[in-house]
Amino acid sequence: MIYQDSKTLLKVRGLYATAKGIEILKGINLTVKSGEVHAIMGTNGSGKSTFAKVLAGHAAYEITGGTVVFKGKNLFDLAPEERARAGMFLGFQYPIEIPGVANNQFLRLAYNKAQVQRNKDELDPLEFDDLVREKMKLLKMDPEFLDRSVNEDFSGGEKKRNEILQMALLDPRLAILDETDSGLDIDAVRIVANGVNQLANRDNAIILITHYQRMLNYIVPDYVHVMESGRIVKSGGKELALELEAHGYDWVSGEQPATVGT
């Protein structure tokens, strides 16, 4: 939801980044205010996932130009864990499997880090168990997933639900969900989208990265941005996603970098 008096959470200006010497991001501008839902769409290789990982602080990418201000701070002064503690959350396109680390142990560790950050009490295993089971209901997740290793042998859909479960526990200010809908069947998309909608509020913001319109049927974006060749080439309201669905990405090619929503 767009609120006129909202604070700016994220301000990206002329962001350039390379991986292994190849320039992937070529001048991204984006402003996200609290309460808003932004969708970033685009073809494979347009730089969407790189943008997400750069924001989260992945070491494989080198920032070669531009600025990013997150909650008033220079984002690049913060290590990945500090960004997380400051309220940034990346829902991974391919969540990592960690054999040997029990999911509940991992979730509690992350949750308690966030609690410390919020100046709240850490939860012991029993207290945490109650909380996490409650949150799992939101995503129709079987509590059995708590005892298994993090994401190990989870199906694609289960992994994505586990990502949203982490989001629910960490309660981030800015959630960047990287293709959370990929690999999900229709029912799972609805469940995950419903979970995200329940977590969205006036004080946080969501950036949805997706190929397809279908996720946006459930999570209605305030802004839609189209990425191509490392830049946002078009921005608009939710109707832009429908136009893209109808006309394909070729339709926006060659247009000038957009200024809407910046």
Binding site: H58, P80, E81, A84, F106, Q166
Partner: peptide, 18 residues
């Protein structure tokens, strides 16, 4: 694995904890 370390750090765990 650097990807595993990054995943944990992106959840607020320090490098050493990860």
């Amino acid at each position: 694995d650097n990807e595993e370390i990054f995943y944990l750090k992106s959840r607020g765990l320090s490098e050493i904890t990860a």
